[in-house]
């Protein structure tokens, strides 16, 4: 295919636009999400448990579970994903315990972080490193 000068310019502009897109999707970093969730309050290490496998063969479905006694809300983050936020759990008045499990996608080997907002307004966090053999974000 032979491009005229004008066509080439249009194609070039399109290409640079698609190159710029992934940078925009990286905007939601884990630090910013933590700041939004806590409102800048200090986060204590420990007090809650985040269970995740050490090695995940398939990043498309990694089982994780949280146990956050006394928490009202728990935010889960995957620090190495294109979008760091994974899920937010809110425990209602009839929650039998502060345990919940789900399955998440991990793009690569990274830290999974859980931050819990306690009933008294303080924050606690837990971290777990997961080695991912095959990433789970397509592409």
């Amino acid at each position: 295919m032979i491009f005229s000068r004008r066509e080439l310019l249009i194609v070039g502009a399109g290409a640079s636009l698609t190159m710029a897109l992934p940078i925009m999707t990286h905007a939601a970093t884990s630090d910013e999400l933590i700041a939004t969730f806590t409102g800048g309050a200090a986060v204590a290490e420990g007090g809650i448990t985040l269970t995740a496998p050490e090695i995940a063969e398939n990043g498309n479905t990694v089982p994780v579970s949280i146990d956050a006694p006394g928490a009202s809300e728990v935010l889960i983050l995957a620090t190495g994903n294109p979008n760091a936020d994974v899920a937010t759990f809110k425990f209602g008045p009839l929650a039998g315990s502060f345990v919940a499990s789900t399955r998440i996608r991990l793009a690569k080997t990274q830290d999974v972080v859980a931050i819990a907002k306690m009933a008294d307004g303080s924050f606690a966090s837990a971290k777990s490193t997961v080695k991912v053999t095959i990433g789970g974000c397509g592409g």
């Binding site: 498309n60 479905t61 990694v62 995957a78 994903n81 979008n83 936020d85 994974v86 899920a87 937010t88 759990f89 809110k90 425990f91 209602g92 008045p93 009839l94 929650a95 039998g96 919940a100 789900t102 399955r103 998440i104 996608r105 991990l106 789970g136």
Partner: peptide, 15 residues
């Protein structure tokens, strides 16, 4: 009518 759990899901939740 009383809430047990309320989860916000992001694209990082598996199929």
């Amino acid at each position: 009518g009383e809430n047990v759990i309320d989860v916000v899901l992001e694209p990082a939740i598996s199929t």
